[in-house]
Amino acid sequence: MAIVRLRAPLKNLAGGNREVTIDGASVGEVLQELERQYPRIEGWVLDEHGRVRRHVNVFVNGERVREDAAVASDATVHVLPSISGGER
C-alpha cells in the first residue's frame, strides 16, 4: 500500500493523520480511496469530476503527477497545496 502524506488542512480532515496508507494502482484510485476512508476530504483534492484540483499538487516518489499516474505499492504520495493557489 502507498504511503500518503498530508499537510494541513487535509491532515485535519483525515483525523489529524499526517500519514496514511492507502491502496490504489493510480493517483486517482488512491485519492478516491482516501476520500472513502476519510469522507471529510471529499471534494477537497478531487473536484466533482474526479480530477485533481488545479491548485493542488500530487507528487509520487518526488515526481509531480496528475490523477492518471501509476502508483506502486511501495510509493510515497505527497498531497499539498500548490504555490499557484491561495488568495492574495
Binding site: P9, L10, G43, W44, V45, D47, R53, H55, V56, P81, S82, G85, G86, E87
Partner: peptide, 8 residues
C-alpha cells in the same frame, strides 16, 4: 472558497 481546495 479555498484557492487550493475549491468551494464548499
Amino acid at each position: 472558497t479555498s484557492g487550493h481546495f475549491g468551494p464548499r
